[in-house]
């Protein structure tokens, strides 16, 4: 796998997760609506200056329909008659706060994913002596997901070629799910059985700490970032409790 460039990619994997968790916590702790909006602005700016404009753009696309729905749900009242429609400033402010929370968390987490290097993550977990099995589950799923998606597409194509009618009404489409799902499940079980044997033979169940092959460095900057995030979250909690 090619090593990704950029500040986020050079950061220790745990720093990235800590920052995302910190952003998520702060989004709900800082006073609304100004707090979440300022936080989103800060996170989006940091994403842009660290070369993660694509991740920030994707986050905005993910959030866009939600922002519209938030504005409609909280900011616009009344029935179906256009004359009865009312706009609430307080509602729009609440929608803006919630929209900014979603934007901040989505941006931070998609920057994390863009910088996520599974091998570095596994080595970081092994080096700390944390649960390698838990990390294995996440990384193995990331590798399995595209394979299963390709298999699903192939099964869909094959069943259509055999005359499966997956169009028409909802009931017909729901009925067509079984001939599509059954081969996927059989494939899943076969793969799981064979993989389980391979993992057993290859010592994944061994009760010894796994060796970290090339653990990522945990630099002073990483530790400062994590402590700062932790400190900000603690301050946010303290402010909430006292206020």
């Amino acid at each position: 796998m090619t090593r990704r460039a950029g500040l986020a990619a050079r950061a220790h994997p745990f720093t990235l997760f800590a920052v995302v968790a910190g952003v998520a916590a702060l989004a709900f702790l800082v006073p609304a609506p100004a707090g979440p909006i300022a936080l989103y602005a800060l996170v989006a700016s940091l994403a842009l200056v660290t070369g993660n404009a694509r991740a920030a753009g994707r986050a905005a696309l993910v959030c866009l329909p939600l922002w519209v729905l938030l504005a409609l749900l909280h900011g616009v009242g009344g029935g179906f008659d256009p004359r009865s429609i009312t706009v609430s400033r307080a509602g729009l402010a609440a929608a803006a706060a919630q929209g900014a929370r979603l934007g901040a968390v989505a941006t931070a987490s998609l920057v994390l994913f863009a910088a996520f290097d599974p091998s570095r993550f596994l080595d970081a977990v092994a080096a700390r002596g944390w649960s390698f099995h838990a990390a294995y589950l996440v990384v193995a799923t990331l590798q399995a997901a595209p394979r299963f998606r390709r298999r699903a597409a192939a099964i869909l194509e094959a069943q259509r070629a055999r005359g499966l009618r997956a169009g028409g009404g909802i009931a017909g489409r729901v009925r067509s799910l079984l001939p599509l799902t059954a081969p996927l499940v059989l494939g899943m079980l076969t793969e799981a059985d064979e993989r389980a044997m391979a993992l057993e033979i290859r010592g994944l169940g061994a009760r010894v700490p796994r060796t970290a092959l090339d653990p990522p460095p945990d630099r002073a900057g990483d530790r400062i970032a994590r402590w700062t995030t932790g400190g900000l979250v603690a301050a946010g909690i303290a402010w909430r409790v006292l206020a």
Binding site: S119, Q143, E191, G203, L204, A212
Partner: peptide, 26 residues
């Protein structure tokens, strides 16, 4: 294909997977 570790990004990591699980020195 079904005997791969499922997590290795390179062939080197694939071959090193089992010895690392057994805690061998680097």
């Amino acid at each position: 294909a079904s005997q791969l570790s499922g997590v290795a990004a390179t062939v080197r990591e694939e071959v090193a997977f089992a010895p690392a699980n057994l805690g061998w020195p680097v």
